[in-house]
Each structure stands twice: as C-alpha cells, then as structure tokens.
C-alpha cells in the first residue's frame, strides 16, 4: 500500500514494547493512535525494528513524513497554528476512516 500526499492516515495504536519483548520502536508514543496526513513519501529504508537487533535481512519499508495538528497530539495545550511532523514507516500507518 502506498499513500499519496494529503492522504489522512492513522498511526497504529500498538505498544510492542509493553509486551515484554525487547524491541526498538521509532514511532513516538505521542503519535500512536493519532490521525495526521501524508506530507511526502521520503523513500525506502530498512526497517529499524530489524536493524536494531542486527538483522541483515531487514525488509525495506516506505518512509513517510506525516504531519499532525499539535492540538490533536496534546489535547488541552494551547496549540494555535502549530503542526508537528514525524517520519513514520508504512507498516505503522493505516488509511484513516
């Protein structure tokens, strides 16, 4: 699946690190379960969750810059005209309903 710029996407609300397995996740906790939109496709990179444990067979994943309204990420904070971006791998993104 690939996402075009402007597509609304939701970050998987998944917490592998809470399952007691030693993992390295590059998806910040504060964007999980949140909806933003694709700014751009950055390119294809090895999945850091594999690279972090020294695996040479890390699958390549599309990496997107995703932009969020900051007010959605930290409700209750004064976030007028503030956005934030995170670079997220495709396996963490789902098309938003």
């Amino acid at each position: 699946m690939s996402f075009a710029p402007g597509t609304r996407v939701t970050v998987r609300n998944d917490w592998p690190e809470a399952k007691g397995v030693k993992v390295h996740i590059r998806t910040p906790h504060f964007v999980r379960g949140k909806t933003g939109r694709i700014e751009t496709l950055i390119g294809e990179f090895g999945d850091p969750e594999f690279l972090a444990i020294g695996r040479k067979d890390a699958p390549k994943r599309a990496l997107y810059m995703v932009v969020f309204d900051r007010a959605d990420l930290f409700p209750g904070t004064n976030a007028h005209n503030e956005t934030m971006t995170a670079d997220l791998y495709e396996n963490w993104l789902e098309a938003a309903p």
């Binding site: 030693k22 390295h24 972090a52």
Partner: peptide, 12 residues
C-alpha cells in the same frame, strides 16, 4: 554496527 543497534542497546 548500526546506529539502530546502538539506540536499542541504550534504551535497554
């Protein structure tokens, strides 16, 4: 080594 491995080790 890769920086990913280093981060993983540090986070542990």
């Amino acid at each position: 080594m890769r920086v990913d491995e280093m981060r993983n080790s540090i986070e542990s």
